[in-house]
């Protein structure tokens, strides 16, 4: 049935690999686990106010997205890393990497297939959690316009997806270099800590110090050099918030520029991953 109706799709090795990764994530309960975490996060941010006051009281849409993105910026990279860390070490340890490479496939096809698979898992989980929140808001709250709310949440899910892709690829880079799974996890947690916490602390310190060379260009550059900062900036920019972190309100970038930078991150990481895969000793 599937075979005859979609012969072309079924033949493409990229999609076969992607489908296998998705199936694997369902079996691992990764999809349910990540979705559940995202739902808890999203609902607690959205409905916590009502719990305190005892009546249904929802935050303003802008404030909601700001709070959501502040927490998502920690959780999404972590989930992406946990999904991708064993993509290559795992297959290397089980001997299937050798096997796949003896098949009529290119290395880029393997990377792309896995990226599509893992990306879909993240997209599905965040759509369920954040999309579900949006739908509930429209249904329960009176003050939310359906179209506007959905647009805001679509934008939020899209940027979350790009952030997830970036960290999935970072996971691949480490997975391609590592010789043991445990080491891959360790290194990735360090990378996560670096990007999500340390970088911003240093950036804020530099800003507070008010050094002479800190002009707008340097700040923009520093933001572009960290995908999590790009994500924060995208979300603040998209809702046009004034009261966010001063750091991001100072950026003079257009939203498209920020999205482009995230896209550049993904492309560069893909190229590096291909390069590392080609040089991986077997």
């Amino acid at each position: 049935m599937f075979n005859t109706s979609l012969p072309l799709l079924r033949r493409s090795p990229v999609l076969i690999i992607a489908a296998k990764e998705i199936k694997d994530s369902f079996r691992n309960r990764w999809i349910s686990f990540i979705s559940l975490i995202f739902i808890i996060l999203s609902f607690s941010v959205t409905f916590a106010g009502s719990a305190i006051t005892g009546t249904l009281a929802f935050p303003e849409l802008n404030n909601l997205i700001t709070s959501l993105s502040t927490i998502a910026v920690f959780i999404i990279p972590l989930a992406a890393i946990l999904l991708s860390y064993d993509a290559f070490v795992g297959e290397d340890e089980s001997g299937t990497l050798l096997l796949l490479l003896s098949y009529p496939l290119t290395r880029s096809q393997i990377i792309l297939g896995k990226l599509i698979g893992h990306g879909s898992v993240m997209l599905l989980s965040s759509s369920i959690a954040f999309g579900g929140t949006g739908v509930l808001l429209v249904l329960l709250g009176e003050d939310y316009g359906a179209i506007e709310t959905m647009l805001v949440f679509t934008q939020f899910i899209l940027s979350s997806f790009l952030l997830a892709l970036t960290f999935i690829l970072i996971g691949y880079l480490v997975s391609l270099r590592a010789t043991e799974k445990a080491r891959a996890v360790g290194s990735l947690l360090f990378v996560w800590f670096l990007f999500v916490l340390l970088y911003d602390l240093l950036l804020l310190a530099v800003l507070v110090a008010d050094l002479s060379f800190m002009n707008q260009t340097v700040i923009n550059l520093l933001i572009a050099l960290n995908p999590t900062d790009l994500y924060r900036a995208v979300n603040i920019m998209a809702i046009g918030a004034q009261g966010g972190l001063s750091l991001f309100s100072e950026t003079s970038w257009a939203l498209e520029g920020l999205y482009c930078s995230m896209f550049v991150w993904i492309c560069v990481l893909m190229v590096i991953a291909n390069h590392l895969f080609r040089r991986k000793p077997l």
Binding site: I16, K20, L98, P104
Partner: peptide, 28 residues
């Protein structure tokens, strides 16, 4: 080419049939 690597252990979570279907699909 047909190849059987030494100590191959495949994908733990998939069933035997799913694994063969996967490799069969990759080989057409």
């Amino acid at each position: 080419l047909g190849y059987l690597p030494e100590n191959v252990s495949f994908y733990d979570k998939l069933t035997g049939e799913e694994i063969l279907h996967y490799f069969a699909a990759l080989k057409g």
